[in-house]
C-alpha cells in the first residue's frame, strides 16, 4: 500500500464510522415513523432519537447500591465492540477498510461480545427483571448464533470466502445472476436473524412498557444517563450494522470499487436509499405481526436454520439443468 492509499483508507474508515453512528438513530426513527404511519398515527418527530440521546447524555447516573464495576464497564465494552465491528462490513467503498483483518465470523464474535457484556451487567443489580431479561436475551442469542454462521457459510460458498468484501465484490461483478435461490434463502434466514438480534417484533417489543414482557428493555432497566445513551445508541448501531450487511450482500450493486468522486457519491446515495428502504420495510413488518410468546421464538430460529441449511443444499440442486 502506498501512503496515499493508506491515507484514503483511513479517511474511508473515519467516514464510515461517522456514517454508521450518525445514521443509527435516524434509521430507528424511520422504523418508528413507518410504523406509526401505517397505524394512522403521526408519530414522533424524525429527530426524536437524537433529542433523546442528547437528553440522556446530559443527565447524571445512579448506580444500584450492590452493583460492582461490571455495571460501569459493560456499556463501554458493549458499545466499543459494536463500534469495532463497523469497519469489517462494507458500507460504500470496497474493500472494507479493515476487511483484511477479519471476516464475518469476527463480526459474529464482536456482536456476541456486546451481548454477553450487557447480559452479565443485567445480573449485577440483583433485581428480578435484570435476570429475566438477561436469560431471555442470551437464550435468543444462543438460538440464532447457528443461523449467523450458517448464513455466512451459505453467502460465502459461491465466492469461497468468508470475508465480507470478497462476498460483496463477487456479487457485484456477477450481475443479476447473483440473485440465486440459494442467496435468497440465506438472506431470508438472515432477515429472521436480524429481527432477533435487534430485538424487533415478533421476538421482542422495543416499545413495550410492561416489565414482564420485556427482553432487552428489562436488561437495561437499571441504567440511566450516559450509560443508557450508549446502550440505546448501541442498539441502533447494531440494527444499522446488520441492515447494512443485509443490503450489501443482497443488493451489492453500486458500491464504489475505486476512489472517484462520482463513484463515491453514487455509492453514498445508493447506500442511503437501500438502508432507508430496508428500515421502512422493517417498520412495515412490525405493524403486521404481534409479539410472539417467548418459546415460539425457537420455532423462528429453527425455521432460520432450515432456510440457511437449505440454501447450502440448494446451491448444488438447481443451476445444473
Amino acid at each position: 500500500m502506498t501512503p496515499w492509499e493508506i491515507l484514503l483508507t483511513t479517511l474511508v474508515l473515519a467516514a464510515e464510522l461517522a456514517l454508521a453512528v450518525g445514521l443509527a438513530p435516524l434509521l430507528t426513527s424511520v422504523v418508528r415513523r413507518r410504523k406509526s404511519r401505517s397505524q394512522r398515527r403521526t408519530g414522533p418527530s424524525m429527530i426524536q432519537p437524537y433529542l433523546d440521546l442528547a437528553k440522556l447524555w446530559g443527565k447524571g447516573t445512579v448506580y444500584v447500591e450492590s452493583s460492582s464495576a461490571v455495571t460501569r464497564a459493560a456499556p463501554l465494552i458493549s458499545f466499543a465492540s459494536l463500534l469495532a465491528a463497523v469497519p469489517f462490513v462494507p458500507w460504500f467503498f470496497l474493500p472494507a477498510p479493515l476487511g483484511f483483518a477479519g471476516d464475518l465470523i469476527v463480526v459474529v464474535g464482536l456482536l456476541a461480545l456486546s451481548r454477553f457484556m450487557t447480559a452479565v451487567a443485567a445480573l449485577d443489580a440483583g433485581s428480578t427483571f435484570g435476570g429475566m431479561g438477561s436469560t431471555r436475551d442470551m437464550w435468543i442469542g444462543a438460538l440464532f448464533e447457528p443461523t449467523f454462521l450458517l448464513v455466512i457459510f451459505a453467502w460465502g460458498a459461491p465466492s469461497g470466502s468468508t470475508q465480507a468484501s470478497t462476498i460483496v465484490l463477487h456479487g457485484a461483478t456477477l450481475g443479476a445472476a447473483h440473485l440465486s435461490p440459494a442467496l435468497l434463502l440465506a438472506s431470508a434466514a438472515f432477515a429472521l436473524l436480524l429481527l432477533a438480534e435487534t430485538g424487533r417484533l415478533p421476538v421482542d417489543n422495543p416499545a413495550t412498557h410492561l416489565e414482564l414482557t420485556m427482553v432487552h428493555e428489562a436488561m437495561v432497566l437499571e441504567y440511566g444517563g450516559r450509560d443508557l445513551a450508549l446502550i440505546e445508541l448501541g442498539q441502533s448501531l447494531r440494527m444499522v450494522l446488520l441492515l447494512e450487511l443485509f443490503v450489501a450482500v443482497l443488493l451489492p450493486w453500486g458500491i464504489a470499487l475505486s476512489f472517484g468522486l462520482a463513484a463515491l457519491a453514487l455509492a453514498l446515495v445508493l447506500l442511503l436509499v437501500k438502508l432507508l428502504a430496508a428500515s421502512a420495510l422493517l417498520g412495515e413488518l412490525e405493524t403486521r405481526v404481534a409479539k410472539w410468546r417467548l418459546f415460539r421464538v425457537a420455532d423462528l430460529a429453527v425455521l432460520s436454520w432450515v432456510l440457511a441449511l437449505g440454501s447450502i443444499s440448494l446451491t448444488y440442486l438447481v443451476g445444473v439443468g
Binding site: 483484511f100 483483518a101 477479519g102 469476527v106 470478497t166
Partner: peptide
C-alpha cells in the same frame, strides 16, 4: 482466498 484474521487489529 478464504478468510483471514488479524486478531491483533481487531
Amino acid at each position: 482466498t478464504g478468510g483471514s484474521l488479524a486478531i491483533g487489529v481487531v
